[in-house]
Design a protein around this nucleic acid. Structure first.
Lengths: 123, 123
DNA sequence: TTAATTGTACAACAAATATTTAAATAATGA
DNA sequence: TCATTATTTAAATATTTGTTGTACAATTAA
């Protein structure tokens, strides 16, 4: 990922409102939510929400599709994961083993439990 | 992770200078770097670098220890991973299977292979 | 002690960002 | 067509942020 892109993406997530919106959409998955539902869930006034939705859309962290008079928003999960990869790549100069001992549990798109399963045992 | 904390952390990473500093320190791992080395590597004037190092230190994304007249900085990897977990948790309402098909490869501090093992077949 | 090095604190200016209110646009259904 | 609902746009204001220059504190070594 290009550095200025990553900066813009982190900037998108640096606002309390936008972070709440994005996490809500991540939780919804492919179903997404229309603007009104998001506003109701997070108690953000329409105009303010629109401002932040526009910002998130411009960075492509969320996508929007029209449904009649509604605008449906969805999280761009692959982009989120690219950003995470950019942040964490080359950990300890490509020797992540140096870092492993200080990591307890990590959720990277799934509950931490599911990951620890893959690290400990398989059902 | 507490929401305001996550906002502060993303804010820390939303500056180009700070993102470069943090990624550089992630790359260095436990060895860390002293302020002068960071400034030389990234070509940031001392006063400006100090400003951003302080911001990163206050959010605990990096730690600082004194070594004689030098200040050695290190990335706080566990906190970084907590933040990643906060961003990505509850993906698709805890049914990450819905998202898996759009995820190609993920570097989350460890090889993507370990993650895909837990995702490919789920009971 | 004196001088050199390293890094931080503070002040000042420039620039960007968030929020609210009010008005505008667009789709729906009686 | 007209009223209603959903959402965006625009304008105004308040708040925050980034950068630079200068001065200062602490450490090291001659």
């Amino acid at each position: 990922m290009y550095h200025p892109t990553a900066t813009l993406l982190f900037n998108s997530l640096a606002s309390g409102v936008r972070l709440n919106v994005f996490r809500l959409l991540v939780k919804q998955g492919p179903a997404g939510m229309v603007a009104g539902e998001i506003g109701a869930a997070l108690e953000v006034p329409p105009a303010n929400l629109s401002f932040h939705l526009k910002a998130l859309t411009q960075t492509q962290l969320i996508t929007v599709t029209q449904e009649g008079r509604y605008q449906r928003y969805r999280a761009n999960i692959p982009l989120m994961l690219d950003l995470v990869a950019y942040l964490t790549e080359e950990c300890c100069s490509g020797n992540p083993g140096q870092c492993m001992d200080i990591r307890s549990g990590v959720a990277c798109g799934e509950p931490a439990a599911a990951l620890s399963i893959s690290n400990q045992e398989k059902p």
